[in-house]
């Protein structure tokens, strides 16, 4: 363990994890917004919107996140010269958030759709019976119940997103997995303790999220 404690002074481990958390929060908002819109598309009466939603999910779900990230950085930024910020670091951070949002939106969409399947048909029929058309019925009757039924898959997607923020290393964002790589490169003799530090850091973030998901899905379950 010689020199292990000095590592904490030398490298900003907490800062790196904070970067993962910031990526998680922003990409969670982005993917939730996009995923909800896609889910509404997929259950809508309009054929072309359903087709857009289905193709989006089928294409994005089957693409490796690493490729989306690398495409963003090497192709969209490198070749198409699309820049979001003149600040180099911020620019790549935004790219990482967008790539993570695009990727996880497909899973959010699937989660919400599976939630919609838990809403009994009578709910949609009752909404129509009192004169609500598709969008109001979706907004005030179907989706609120669907979201509560989708807590477990949504929570799983959020956990996956948290772990996937490490892929932002491909966009050279200074987050925990990239920091671990640098730390091991310069301190190969402390390899195992460095790995365990970062790994346990992720356990501390991820495992409570799993417990919270289970607790919330019990608490918010729609009593039927």
């Amino acid at each position: 363990m010689n020199g292990f404690l000095e590592l904490f002074a030398e490298y900003d481990i907490i800062g790196a994890f904070w970067m993962n958390i910031r990526l998680t929060i922003l990409a969670a908002i982005g993917s939730f917004a996009l995923g909800t819109v896609l889910a509404v598309f997929r259950i809508s009466p309009v054929g072309s919107l359903r087709a857009i939603g289905t193709s989006y999910v089928n294409v994005v779900r089957n693409t490796p996140l690493t490729i989306i990230m690398v495409l963003g950085v090497l192709a969209v930024w490198g070749q198409l010269k699309i820049t979001f910020s003149s600040d180099f670091e911020l620019n790549f951070f935004i790219y990482a958030v967008i790539a993570l949002s695009i990727y996880h939106a497909a899973f959010v969409c699937e989660a919400i759709r599976s939630g919609v399947n838990t809403v009994p048909q009578g709910q949609a029929e009752a909404a129509r019976a009192i004169g609500l058309s598709f969008l109001p019925a979706a907004r005030v009757v179907v989706l609120p119940q669907a979201l509560r039924g989708a807590i477990t898959p949504l929570g799983n997607t959020l956990i996956a997103l948290t772990k996937n923020t490490t892929v932002a290393a491909a966009a050279s964002v200074a987050e925990a997995s990239g920091l671990m790589k640098t730390m091991i490169e310069f301190n190969p003799n402390l390899m195992v303790s460095i790995f365990l530090t970062i790994a346990i850091g992720f356990c501390i973030i991820v495992i409570p999220m799993g417990l919270l998901t289970t607790w919330l899905s019990d608490k918010l379950a729609v009593a039927r």
Binding site: K163, N164, T166, V167, A169, A176, S177, M180, K181, I184, E185, P188, M191, F195, I198, A199, F202, C203, V206, I207
Partner: peptide, 13 residues
């Protein structure tokens, strides 16, 4: 709970 990428970086080294 550990991201695959973190695992892979460590295993690579």
């Amino acid at each position: 709970a550990v991201p695959v990428l973190v695992m892979m970086f460590f295993l690579y080294f």
